[in-house]
Design a protein around this nucleic acid. Structure first.
Ligand SMILES: [Mn+2]
Ligand SMILES: [Mn+2]
Ligand SMILES: [Mn+2]
Ligand SMILES: [Mn+2]
Lengths: 218, 218
DNA sequence: ACATATTTTTAGATTAATCTAAATTTTTGA
DNA sequence: TCAAAAATTTAGATTAATCTAAAAATATGT
């Protein structure tokens, strides 16, 4: 049985692998987990000992098959609990991450599956992130950002790259939400801001915003 | 912020207080938590330091006001999660304790309250135990056992004293459940077994069974 | 009452996860 | 290429929670 700490290291390694490609080094892990590099070295030696990661001194790490399976299962639990909190307990999407960080570590052979069925097998969490199935299969984002849309083309908002509370609250205040169809009306070369239009409004958003919204072109 | 271990000690002390009156000593705590008495001594010194328990060397412990508040809050969370698991995820009443042992430690200022509302403010958990309100008020069992009923009197089963899986499964197999009205038909002096009748059957049960069923006389 | 049994505490060790400071290895760029 | 910078590992310490063994205090029973 893995400790919560070990599970968090595996999850961190998995998520760094998704965003930073294959260069997963000590510093990146320590930054993600807010620990010191020396602590990371200790832990990765332990995880390597348990055959959950490959590790060569000074060369960084990568997940083994079984390490990846566990990491994805934690992600699965995290996202299903987030759906529960938003859909059933009426939390807002900016409030659920910390609770899900705890709930993802609940140990049970059957709980995730029951939860998933109770939630009617959702495919995405409240932030648009895909929910892995019980075998660890996970549909990856196509990674089309709103910032990359041409003028006069439209897209449906399907996810956020940054799920910080502050960004999510900004979106709430800007009346932009998942499922919105957004059309790009104009682009400003000077600062790469864009003028967009959804059902409710026409407004200008900075590149920092448009580069953190995943869309599906239509 | 208390550790899970500290919370478990407070809960154990609370529950020993409920069943064994006010004599809460090191050995009882160690037995409840499956630790050694020396470990208990260490922890109770720590909890006393934090003013969560009163402790005098060699004299046992008792909860302070704030310690009791915390203990009851853990009990509240435990029982509400059990209701969730049974009522929403369709678990049987003998399957939920271990999961609730973990879920009771999830930290959030708002989660229990939201959960309680989602469950429609249940008053009892799946084993008939009362659920404390948000202020820590808790309706105590009247502690009438089925074994104490007179011949020809009846009672409604409102709880179990023993919530072990084996006892709960025994009740399932015996077609006895919470809410059943049970009439005592006869008593056997030799072994204190009793003949009972509910909607489905007439059957004999041993004193070990009848002394573990709480009833409300009617 | 007091010797013996039981309970509780103390002393010292262990394990997991972390840290700081120092040593080592790798990377960078003049 | 090779010295300086950066990253990584090692050494040694700390904290929480546990344990075993021994010492001290309390309880028990004749
Ligand atoms: Mn999250
Ligand atoms: Mn999410
Ligand atoms: Mn329980
Ligand atoms: Mn219960």
């Amino acid at each position: 049985m893995l400790s919560q700490t070990e599970e968090n290291y595996l999850k961190a390694i998995y998520s760094i692998g998704i965003s930073n490609g294959k260069n997963i080094n000590t510093t990146l892990i320590s930054r993600k987990l807010k620990t010191k590099p020396s602590s990371v070295t200790d832990m990765i030696r332990k995880l390597a000992e348990k055959d959950l990661i490959y590790y060569e001194k000074y060369k960084g790490v990568s997940l083994t098959q079984s390490g990846k399976k566990i990491a994805i299962d934690i992600v699965r639990k995290h996202r299903l609990w987030e759906v529960f909190l938003v859909n059933k307990l009426n939390y807002n999407w900016d409030e659920v991450h910390e609770m899900a960080e705890q709930l993802e570590h609940i140990k049970s052979d059957t709980l995730v599956g029951r939860l998933e069925a109770f939630l009617d097998f959702p495919k995405h969490d409240p932030h648009g992130d895909p929910i892995p199935d019980e075998n660890g299969n996970i549909a990856q984002h196509k990674n089309v950002m709103l910032s990359s849309l041409e003028i006069n083309s439209s897209g449906v908002v399907i996810g956020v790259k940054d799920s910080s509370s502050s960004f999510l609250q900004f979106l709430d205040n800007s009346n932009i939400k998942l499922g919105d169809t957004i059309k790009v009306i104009a682009k400003e070369d000077y600062d790469n801001s864009i003028l967009i239009e959804n059902k409710l409004q026409t407004k200008s958003i900075s590149q920092q915003i448009s580069a953190n919204l995943f869309v599906k072109k239509i």
